[in-house]
Design a binder for these strands. Sequence first.
DNA 1: GTTGAAACTGTGATTGT
DNA 2: ACAATCACAGTTTCAAC
Lengths: 149, 149
Amino acid sequence: MTGVEDLDRQIVRLLASNGRMSYTELGKLTGLSTSAVHQRVRRLEQRGIIKGYAAVVDYEALDLPLTAFISIKPIDPSQPDDSPDLLQDVPEIEDCHSVAGDENYLLKVRVTSPRALEELLARIRSKANVSTRSLIVLSTPYEHRPPAV
Amino acid sequence: MTGVEDLDRQIVRLLASNGRMSYTELGKLTGLSTSAVHQRVRRLEQRGIIKGYAAVVDYEALDLPLTAFISIKPIDPSQPDDSPDLLQDVPEIEDCHSVAGDENYLLKVRVTSPRALEELLARIRSKANVSTRSLIVLSTPYEHRPPAV
DNA sequence: GTTGAAACTGTGATTGT
DNA sequence: ACAATCACAGTTTCAAC
């Protein structure tokens, strides 16, 4: 994976903390003209360094107040583990990481209630033929902080 | 926490998957006029339901290819645990969740190398007076998927 | 919520360095 | 190759309705 130079890193950092910043303002903050910034952003997007833009949402207001981390392990370890594929269409799953250690994958999920989590766990177990271990999030002091590039 | 109505949920979901979508396009997709959408988005921002906008970044290209989850527990459990405050200025920490279970907090961090992780762990331990347990991410099949509102 | 008008921004072509 | 300038289309923003 090819790296990015200083000016690009600065642009990426600025867009990571404010994804709707205008090219004009990016230009002021980086000392470039609007169209120079525009070109650079387009190249960053094409190279996949900027993968997209997302609104940062308050999940409580969306009636998804319960966050949990679920680590999963196949019931039958002799089979190849394609859990990410099998779970791709489970909408409650926000993140899926392959991890080193006792379990194979760590999922981050958002649900409405403990009851919904119970149902989700059953769905995950049956879809991927895995055992699950859950870690309930009580509160989130901070989240999605931009990278210190 | 007060909920949001259907039209607002639709707008939030659209902005969660494309944070730079124009008000004009949002209007087309929701059947509203541009300025009606604009007003709703402004109110969603003011109510804190939309907390901000962020570019979704490729951390490998930013030379932060190593992601880890670190769970922490105070060395001295009799003291009040203000770890999030003590760790607030550690830039490698992307998320900080208070969790139920053996440990108090779960941190998500991004670093350059195993060596950088080792140094970060030492920094976290000394700043917050905690013991740490780390889970290394090997790969990430998917991440930051928008909520299925 | 809608319409319409004014200011600003995004976008591409062109030119200069 | 990269940046600056200009021109036009599209968008944001704020009136008044």
